[in-house]
Lab assay of single mutants.
Amino acid sequence: MAASAHGSVWGPLRLGIPGLCCRRPPLGLYARMRRLPGPEVSGRSVAAASGPGAWGTDHYCLELLRKRDYEGYLCSLLLPAESRSSVFALRAFNVELAQVKDSVSEKTIGLMRMQFWKKTVEDIYCDNPPHQPVAIELWKAVKRHNLTKRWLMKIVDEREKNLDDKAYRNIKELENYAENTQSSLLYLTLEILGIKDLHADHAASHIGKAQGIVTCLRATPYHGSRRKVFLPMDICMLHGVSQEDFLRRNQDKNVRDVIYDIASQAHLHLKHARSFHKTVPVKAFPAFLQTVSLEDFLKKIQRVDFDIFHPSLQQKNTLLPLYLYIQSWRKTY
């Protein structure tokens, strides 16, 4: 089996927390979720979201995140109150960019949308954001926290390059993509939290790379249903696996070995980020709550012996909000 052949990389499970039942964490995340308004986002309300009498641009960002990046939404709820709305805006910006690729039928249209967001970032730093909910909220975040323009532009530029429907040539190319998107998002989150620390940035770099790799793995069944495969070609070739094997949902050992190798790289990034947690300011830990969902996925895929098409991998963990709150309460990542 794939797991038994390579099992030495995987460390002990961390979500089991001995003695936790003896201490009762304060009510927090679930209460916040219940208090949030929840009407559906419609095209009509989106168009009017920044106008008078609408929910408001902040509510639009929150709803977009809740629907399109639920794990990011849950993590954002546990940030300090003064930072929450800015991170909602930042993550909503990322969602807007991420959904361009799947929402257009022609690359030219995707490039036009990316050009809109490039100009939007430029206009935000000229205090002239367009009348668009996410743009307005992002402008507020930039003004409030003096966010670095370079990180925002890196996210747009990398998403634009990724409009080509090509597999990553190697794991390094996937890591570079993750660094310029997910890690950049974390650098900006640290700025919102008021953290300027080399060790925190180092952790953000590795956690962002782990996030990018896990996202690529999780999306494999969806991409396969659209006749697309984006997994690193070098690892596929190493194990003699073709793109057609993934399109046919082949579950042979060599296919699972490909998934094992890729998942192991995410695991190593996560492990390395945690190896120097004592040197990272505690104030930075809330920015890294996504490690909970990353670890949850890596454990699940290990349990199914790296069968990327196993139905259990597509099921939401209903206990994730609780695990996130516990992680926040324990002040760790």
Rank of each mutant, 00 (worst) to 15 (best):
L198I: 14
K143D: 03
H267R: 08
A89R: 03
A48G: 13
A47Y: 15
R150A: 06
E63K: 10
T215P: 00
I235D: 03
S275M: 11
K101N: 14
E96C: 10
G56Q: 15
R249M: 08
F297W: 14
K161A: 13
W55C: 14
I213P: 02
L294G: 02
K228M: 14
R91M: 06
A48M: 15
L238M: 08
K67L: 10
Q315L: 09
Y70S: 08
A178P: 01
L322H: 05
G208L: 00
R144H: 06
I124P: 01
N250F: 11
F297L: 04
L77W: 04
D307S: 02
K209F: 01
G51D: 13
V214K: 03
K300F: 00
K161D: 10
A135R: 02
P286T: 08
K331V: 11
P286C: 10
V156G: 03
R249I: 09
A263S: 13
D69S: 02
T279R: 14
T291A: 08
D69Q: 00
P232N: 00
I192V: 14
I155R: 01
K299N: 11
D123Q: 14
G194D: 08
K107F: 09
E175I: 05
Q302S: 07
V258P: 02
V156F: 05
N170G: 14
D234N: 06
I195C: 13
L174G: 00
V292P: 03
H239S: 03
E295Q: 11
N317Y: 08
G53H: 11
G240M: 08
Q243F: 04
H310Y: 04
Y222K: 08
K278T: 11
R169W: 15
E82S: 14
N180M: 14
K331M: 12
G208I: 00
E160C: 12
S105T: 15
I155T: 06
A81S: 14
R303D: 10
A266Q: 01
E63R: 12
R113A: 06
P321S: 08
I262E: 01
D296K: 07
M233C: 06
I136T: 11
E158D: 10
L64T: 14
S85A: 13
N170H: 11
D164M: 11
I124Y: 02
I155H: 05
V292Q: 07
A81Y: 14
Q314P: 06
L198A: 05
T318K: 06
I308M: 06
I195T: 10
Q132P: 04
R150D: 05
A204M: 03
V134F: 03
T120V: 13
Y325C: 13
I235S: 07
L152E: 01
I136A: 11
V156M: 11
E179S: 03
R144Q: 12
D307F: 03
K119D: 13
L147H: 02
Y187H: 08
N254M: 05
L97C: 09
F309Y: 13
W329V: 09
N180Q: 13
A204D: 00
K228E: 11
I326L: 14
N94H: 05
L217Q: 00
T148C: 12
H59F: 11
K209P: 01
N250P: 09
V282I: 09
P80A: 09
S50F: 08
K101P: 14
K196F: 06
Y125P: 00
A284K: 02
E82L: 13
T291G: 01
L217T: 02
W139G: 05
A273S: 11
L152T: 00
G224T: 15
S105Q: 11
L186D: 02
R150L: 08
K283S: 14
S184M: 14
L313E: 01
A203V: 11
D261R: 08
Q115P: 04
R68P: 01
I109M: 10
L247V: 12
K149H: 07
Q115L: 09
I195Q: 08
L193D: 01
K154Q: 09
F88P: 02
K228Q: 11
L152Y: 01
S205N: 10
L247K: 05
L193Q: 04
D201E: 05
Q211D: 13
S183T: 10
K278G: 15
F88S: 08
K166R: 09
V292H: 12
W139D: 03
G51H: 14
A89E: 02
L324G: 03
D252Q: 13
Q302P: 01
G72C: 08
V104W: 12
R144A: 11
T215E: 04
Y73A: 03
L90Q: 04
H267L: 07
L97F: 01
L322N: 03
L74V: 14
T148W: 02
R303F: 09
I195Y: 02
V46S: 07
S103E: 13
K253R: 12
E63Q: 14
Y187G: 01
E158V: 10
H223N: 15
K278I: 06
K278M: 12
V142Q: 05
G194R: 08
T220S: 14
D164V: 12
S225A: 14
I207K: 00
W117I: 04
S76G: 15
L138C: 03
H131V: 13
Y70E: 05
C236D: 02
I192E: 00
K118Q: 10
E137M: 06
